[in-house]
Write a protein that binds this DNA or RNA. Structure first.
Lengths: 350, 350
DNA sequence: GGAACTTGTGCAAAGGATTGCAGAACGGCG
DNA sequence: CGCCGTTCTGCAATCCTTTGCACAAGTTCC
């Protein structure tokens, strides 16, 4: 009877077909107790026959809530973020939220752009894995991976200090290293005036300095390096070779992220160094297939999933209005010992 | 003057503040030539001062286009899809589209659910990495990774036949293997009646059978295995051990995806087999850090990025209305030779 | 001086779902 | 018979932006 639109049917079509008003149709589909059982069934029947799907734009516009959250990450292609994204998304979708993923490519400008975009999309909340020297963001937000300078938003991050300490102490206490070098993620993201402090990069760096100091070891400035945001892998390769070319090369290295650790390993290989015989190598994050690498990589046990999930849960609490103080949650670190630190060698008896 | 909303300002606020009508404000911000230069400047100035951000819900509702596309993948956490997602997203965002990512966890039901959700979100197009025994989907769509049975939608997929052939021929022609086993991705996704054919799984399997046949080699049924959607990695581990326990174990194995290959490697390790000395192993996709694995993995060179980018480009063409025939684009395969096939050994002289 | 344009601006509708409020229909009770 | 409660329905406004159409003011040209 009603002219069938070529496109998708609207509530008006359903209502007309079922012989009721839009209001009633809407209520029927929402299973409101206000509508008569027979009417309800009839509307549902028509709705399914027409394959009606309520337009979320219209619904969200009217309701003032989109049931969508924005997720901002530096690099979805990197396994760490991909994995964190996945577990966050699982938790959010289970709670009925959809996820709009934005990738910043580690550029401060794109990061701000992403936040504006998400605001324009009227997302109900934000999960942000990038730095964040933001002014107010108008919706509940949880930062993860990095703890932002910003007060007022919750954060979920690794126990960077504890993690680095675990790595350094293992190298020192178990293997007796005295010359340990560190290659960390950038301290800041962006260029020039746009720079934004990266909580994680800074924290791990400080933690490294502190741990080495605590062990009473010397720390030549050349032993401490950080990468540029755009060229992690490459920087680490170069760093490895430069470190080994020093008059006093380190006997152990720490990669401040999975990518940095594999980059260091490549650099060492290219330079003809054996790990762990010539240099020990450990990683803060767990590289993909760490157990299958040559040598199997000693690192902190995989925490990307926990980070994602916990961040999502914190955001869900905030969205539910649980007005707890934002605060920062730390994910504890655990050491996963393999061979790159030298461990099996000592056990197996060199 | 106008009461400032606590929330975000709307176009009405800007218009009031600038002393013009909403219509004029809208046109001014769109840089329409219909509005006077002075007015335009004034509106822009107010807009920036108020940090006005047009509500995309309202805009999309009115315009009938969201400038958003939906992306459906089986597992965002898997590096293959994460990487494809990233390159697709880069291309789409460069063209002004946003991306709504939905994860199906390889379940046919969630896949249908995802498509309905995306339809409700009024996305302008779809990029689907899962099977697809769909009826009509109302918007331009491009399938990638899998070629759907569905006619009428474009697809971008690996040259599965050529890729498998490359792997088999390398094992046969260069290394003289005669007993080659294959562990592939599932042929179908879902459970029971919900099953949906997976183009890729089926294609690679057929290609394997064909290549082995072409080489004139025998192919005991036990040599051909496929994994369940939910347990790739684990299935591959088990398969490796079972294959090696056969009376006539294979002398070479092919992993039909990166995860399957690393799973096989783990299984072989656990069973105490050396690769490639005891068994050769090659992979269809390139595992993360394939060059750092023990042994470095021979595989088809990384194609996830190409796949993502080309799929995005195909979708953009469809969205632009380039009414070319949908058709299927194949990404050519290239062999990346490392050591797991046995190559360096022969060169180095065993 | 008036017709015919050109330029800018504003009114109001449209897009689709939700929801406050009013009111219809009906049963029950005094 | 009249009044009051229930139980459903429907009208119409609302969310915010875009845009077709009308119109006002100013300019140009016969």
């Amino acid at each position: 009877m009603a002219v069938r639109r070529s496109a998708t049917p609207t509530l008006a079509d359903v209502a007309a077909e079922a012989g009721v008003s839009q209001a009633t149709a809407s209520r029927a589909l929402a299973d409101s107790p206000l509508v008569n059982e027979n009417t309800r069934r009839r509307v549902w029947e028509v709705s399914e026959r027409l394959r009606f799907q309520p337009n979320r734009l219209a619904r969200s516009l009217r309701r003032g809530a989109t049931m969508a959250v924005g997720l901002v990450v530096p690099d979805v292609g990197a396994s760490f973020y991909a994995s964190a994204l996945k577990s966050a998304q699982d938790a959010l979708e289970a709670a009925g939220y959809h996820v709009l993923v934005l990738n910043t490519g580690r550029a401060a400008a794109r990061e701000r752009e992403a936040l504006r975009t998400l605001r324009a999309h009227q997302v109900d909340g934000l999960l942000v894995a990038t730095s964040g020297g933001y002014e107010d963001i108008g919706v509940p937000a949880v930062f993860f991976d990095n703890v932002p300078a910003l007060r007022g938003a919750g954060a979920v991050a690794m126990d960077n200090d504890g993690g680095v300490r675990l790595l350094v102490e293992h190298l020192v206490d178990v293997h007796g290293h005295e010359r340990i070098a560190y290659m960390g993620p950038p301290e800041a993201v962006g260029t020039g005036a746009d720079d934004v402090l990266q909580g994680t990069g800074r924290e791990r760096l400080e933690a490294f300095r502190a741990a080495v100091g605590r062990a009473g070891l010397p720390l030549p400035p050349e032993y401490v390096r950080t990468s540029e945001p755009a060229s992690f892998e490459e920087d680490a390769r170069v760093a490895a070779r430069e470190l080994m070319a020093l008059a006093q090369p380190p006997t152990a290295m720490i990669g401040g992220s999975d990518t940095l650790a594999t980059g260091l390993l490549r650099g060492l290989r290219e330079g003809g160094r054996r790990v762990p015989e010539d240099v020990a190598l450990v990683s803060f994050d767990e590289p993909v297939s760490a157990d299958l690498l040559d040598p199997p990589m000693t690192c902190l046990a995989r925490h990307d999933r926990d980070l994602g999930r916990m961040a999502a849960e914190a955001l869900l609490r905030a969205l539910a209005g649980d007005e707890g103080p934002p605060g920062t949650v730390r994910v504890p670190a655990a050491l996963s010992v393999r061979r790159s630190c030298g461990c099996d060698l000592t056990e197996g008896g060199v």
